[in-house]
């Protein structure tokens, strides 16, 4: 497993899907470990009842079927697939509605799904998923991207309410890849994956959804910023170390052929 995780840290993130399937075939006995530890690009299915698309993940899967957050039904149909309790389902419906608006405001497109289920210690777990295709042929408003994908997975464990507070433990991953391509500049691709955690104890006065939403919003902003500023910045720094920009070179090395 350690070696497998080592490889995932090195292989270009845009190839992570191929890398994961290669590892799964090499290590079939570690498949559940691999699937839980390696983030992979999200897949989508269409809910036959509502006509809306929903996102597939380990958390809405039972056997080979996936539960849609819109109709609460498994696709393909499954008789005994687990469902959240009526009370939790109510929160799940609300979360899906609100998160759709959140997603639209930040992503100007894309697909989102929220899944919830009870855990063993009187709390629950919620999983918020966003998938956005920002390429110019899909939801890229500005039309700059030849290819552009953003997959965000937020898993949040909510502890049982103790007096007025509850404990929230959020684990978020983002995988992205963006490519621009034009004749004068060639192909330019940046791809990446990062994962971070955040723990908070918050009053439940305004409700779980409000608390979870704020944590996710803060986390997404942090992840986006660190990708933009730190991670992309470091690769740019590397390029400028390999070949320092002209103004530095010119001042350091005046052209020797000009007398």
């Amino acid at each position: 497993m350690e070696a497998a995780m080592g490889l995932m840290r090195r292989i270009p993130p845009k190839h992570s899907e191929a890398a994961l399937s290669a590892l799964l075939s090499l290590l079939p006995h570690h498949s559940s470990d691999l699937l839980s530890q390696v983030d992979q690009p999200l897949q989508v299915l269409c809910d036959v009842d509502s006509g809306k698309e929903f996102i597939l993940c380990e958390y809405n899967r039972d056997a080979d079927s996936y539960r849609s957050p819109w109709s609460n039904k498994y696709h393909p149909a499954l008789d005994d697939g687990p469902h959240p309790s009526a009370e939790l389902r109510k929160l799940e419906i609300e979360a899906n509605d609100v998160f759709t608006i959140y997603r639209d405001q930040y992503y100007e497109g894309g697909i989102s799904s929220v899944y919830m289920w009870e855990d063993e210690n009187e709390g629950f777990i919620a999983c918020f998923l966003i998938k956005k295709d920002g390429s110019k042929t899909a939801h890229g408003r500005r039309g700059y991207l030849q290819e552009g994908s953003w997959d965000a997975i937020h898993v949040i464990e909510v502890g049982p309410e103790e007096e007025v507070n509850a404990r929230y433990c959020l684990t978020s991953s983002v995988m992205l890849s963006l490519t621009t391509n034009d004749e004068s500049e060639g192909t330019f691709n940046l791809s990446g994956s990062i994962r971070r955690q955040m723990n908070m104890e918050l009053s439940v006065a305004e409700g779980h959804l409000c608390n979870m939403g704020r944590m996710i919003e803060e986390m997404e902003s942090k992840l986006r910023n660190s990708l933009d500023q730190v991670y992309f910045g470091k690769t740019k720094e590397m390029v400028c170390t390999l070949r320092p920009p002209a103004e530095i070179v010119q001042t350091k090395f005046p052209d020797s052929r000009i007398p």
């Binding site: 920002g134 939801h139 963006l178 940046l190």
Partner: peptide, 23 residues
């Protein structure tokens, strides 16, 4: 052109994936 691609990231290319702030 590489530097230009980098400088375009925050406000154009990256924005098509996710905005910094909502609309």
């Amino acid at each position: 052109s590489l530097q230009k691609s980098y400088s375009k990231l925050p406000d154009t290319t990256f924005k098509d994936l996710r905005r910094k702030l909502p609309v």
